[in-house]
């Protein structure tokens, strides 16, 4: 009996023991930070992502699998600005991992490192799903990715000091490639400057600020509230009265409202990847903006 118990204990210990050379375990809440962590961390990190590009990042459940992954994480990468308020605190509370709790070095919020847009002057839920810290969809401006990359490399070096030099050199290389790419995208996207568009959800203020696109209206009457017929009728009137070029939605959003408007207002309906994996072309961070700019330019025609 005793030997059997010992054997079982040994088996359990083996099953639960961490591998001898453990890579840094990173849990990213959304695909863009997962992709960035992989760019900077290379083979020193294992990245898992809590959501796919087809999920609405505001509405994720505190699933058992997420609790299990947060339990083993050395670093949790979140957007912050209350984007994950509905689930991440519950996952972290249940995961029993003190390293990644808010305020610890193992908890990284990207929104803390970029200038936030659309900070509401008045906080009232009658205005819809507003975020006190500003619009959380910061990844639609590639220059924000560059800012977050700098901060993230520093954080990786802090959490995993043994590989600090590795992370810094990867970040330096990434920064070079990235600034070249940003310059290229800006050149390609020059015709978009001043273009008037309608969006499904207020998901792109950073993108529009970057490329000089102007937003004429949203299909959602309030952020996070489903489009209604009466509101769509008003948006249609706007779209007909002004030289609106296209109606834009993120890949995860239902296409019915934007198709409805596109048909009636005779404008192009454009689905943007929004994050890595949102479209077949957006396979990594570079592809994300390649495809975004390509789709926007197509929408102009």
């Amino acid at each position: 009996m005793t030997t059997r118990v010992l054997r079982l204990a040994a088996l359990l210990a083996l099953a639960f023991a961490p591998p001898a050379i453990a890579a840094l375990n990173i849990l990213a809440t959304v695909p863009e930070w997962g992709a960035l962590a992989a760019e900077l961390g290379g083979d020193k990190v294992t990245v898992s992502v809590a959501t796919t590009a087809m999920q609405d990042p505001h509405h994720v459940e505190a699933r058992p699998s997420l609790i299990a992954r947060a339990r083993g994480a050395d670093l949790v990468l979140a957007t912050g600005a209350e984007l994950e308020a509905g689930w991440l605190p519950m996952v972290l509370q249940q995961a029993g991992n003190a390293k990644v709790r808010e305020g610890q070095p193992g908890h990284f919020e990207a929104a803390a490192f970029v200038p936030m847009l659309e900070k509401p002057a008045r906080l009232d839920r009658a205005e819809g799903d507003v975020h006190a810290s500003g619009n959380p969809h910061i990844q639609t401006d590639p220059r924000n990715i560059g800012r977050v990359a700098t901060a993230l490399a520093a954080r990786l070096a802090e959490v995993d000091p043994a590989n600090a030099a590795y992370y810094r050199s990867r970040q330096a290389r990434f920064a070079d490639r990235w600034s070249a790419a940003v310059a290229r995208w800006e050149k390609e996207a020059a015709p978009l400057r001043g273009a008037l568009v309608i969006v499904h959800h207020k998901a792109f203020p950073y993108l529009f600020g970057w490329l000089g696109i102007r937003e004429a209206g949203t299909l959602e009457p309030r952020p996070g509230v489903e489009p209604t017929t009466s509101h769509l009728t008003r948006v249609l009137a706007t779209a007909k009265a002004q030289p609106v070029k296209m109606v834009i939605r993120a890949a995860y959003q239902d296409d019915r409202a934007s198709q409805w408007l596109a048909e009636r207002a005779k404008v192009n309906a454009v689905a943007l990847p929004f994050t890595v994996g949102g479209t077949p072309g957006a396979g990594d961070l570079f592809g994300l903006y390649d495809d975004t700019v390509r789709r926007l330019l197509q929408g102009l025609q």
Binding site: P18, P64, I67, A68, R71, G72, Q94, G96
Partner: peptide, 12 residues
Amino acid sequence: MKWIAPIDQFIE
């Protein structure tokens, strides 16, 4: 007292 197993499979 709750314990979460340190594996990818959720066990509580």
